[in-house]
Design a protein around this nucleic acid. Structure first.
Length: 276
DNA sequence: CGCATTCCCTGGGTGC
DNA sequence: TGCACCCAGGGAATGC
């Protein structure tokens, strides 16, 4: 499930592999993937557009084109492939873009949760409707710990839920939220309103540190793109708690536990991580 | 208003 | 081997 580091890796890889192609045509095989219009409109909007820049906010990919923004959220299993047009279409390919270099950019999504959005470039992309409930990107220089501290006041939610909430700080998903709680030595069920300003300084620092490391790892382990553009980073090797139920904590040897917070599977060490 | 629950999806895993 | 069932989860929609 792509979170900020995986989305960033996809973005960097696409930019390097594709550079600035023109989209000659497109086909959509699963209509619901297009969120902003019907399929006909979508195709007419992207046709003849050239990708001139690549951006990201949280988990959203932003392809800046000549006249439009093409925005993609991969959700759980969305992937891009750069393939030859002769390559047979897999049944999970839902969108195909014909590029002017003769290749195709293909969107693959087994569970069909991902969405694509198209907007005219009349306003800065951060102001678009799709981002109305998306706050500062984790690495946005305008994001600071005092802002997060202020947003956390009078909130009854847990630390884990706060980290997953994209309205304040965007990009953290279920895996990294667990890792951030562990790095802070805080129980994921700690009420976020109990955290101090100092705690939020550490929270932002550790979030950026962990996600930066994950980007580094993802960046070194992407597979060859001749046949596929599949992100398979090595960050799994650095995880301390997520998906490690019953394994022993690397710090204190206590078995890692799995609980549910807001319906999300959550992993933590009850010895290292205490409620505040 | 705010928090909790449901829904969207499919493949993989489990139990019989 | 087959079949029914359950689970994973980001974010929008719906419910209380």
């Amino acid at each position: 499930m792509p979170e900020l580091p995986e989305v960033e890796t996809v973005l960097r890889t696409l930019e390097k592999q594709l550079q600035h192609p023109q989209i000659k045509n497109a086909r959509v095989y699963y209509d619901k993937v297009i969120a902003t219009s019907d399929v006909e409109t979508f195709i007419s909007q992207v046709k003849e557009e050239q990708i001139i820049d690549y951006h990201r906010i949280g988990k959203y990919l932003i392809f800046e084109c000549t006249n439009i923004y093409l925005i993609v959220h991969l959700r759980m299993e969305g992937k891009f492939y750069i393939q030859e047009k002769e390559e047979p279409l897999n049944k999970h390919i839902h969108v195909v873009f014909d590029l002017d270099n003769g290749k195709q950019l293909r969107y693959h999504d087994t569970r069909k949760f991902g969405r694509m959005y198209v907007y005219d470039k009349s306003i800065p992309y951060s102001m678009l409707e799709v981002f109305k409930n998306v706050g500062y990107d984790v690495f946005d220089e305008n994001l600071d710990s005092m802002y997060l501290y202020k947003q956390s006041r009078n909130k009854s939610v847990t630390l884990k839920q706060f980290l997953l909430d994209q309205r304040y700080m965007a990009g953290v998903g279920n895996i990294y939220a667990d890792e951030i709680c562990f790095a802070l030595s805080l129980h994921p069920k700690t009420k976020v309103s109990h955290l101090s300003k100092k705690d939020f300084e550490k929270l932002l620092f550790e979030t950026r540190r962990i996600l930066s490391e994950a980007i580094q790892e993802g960046g070194t382990t992407i597979r060859s793109y001749t046949s596929s553009l599949k992100v398979d980073g090595r960050f799994q090797l650095k995880l301390k708690v997520h998906n490690k139920k019953e394994e022993l904590c690397s710090v204190c040897n206590t078995p890692i536990e799995k609980i549910f917070i807001g319906g999300r599977g959550t992993y933590f060490c009850r010895s290292c991580q205490k409620k505040k």
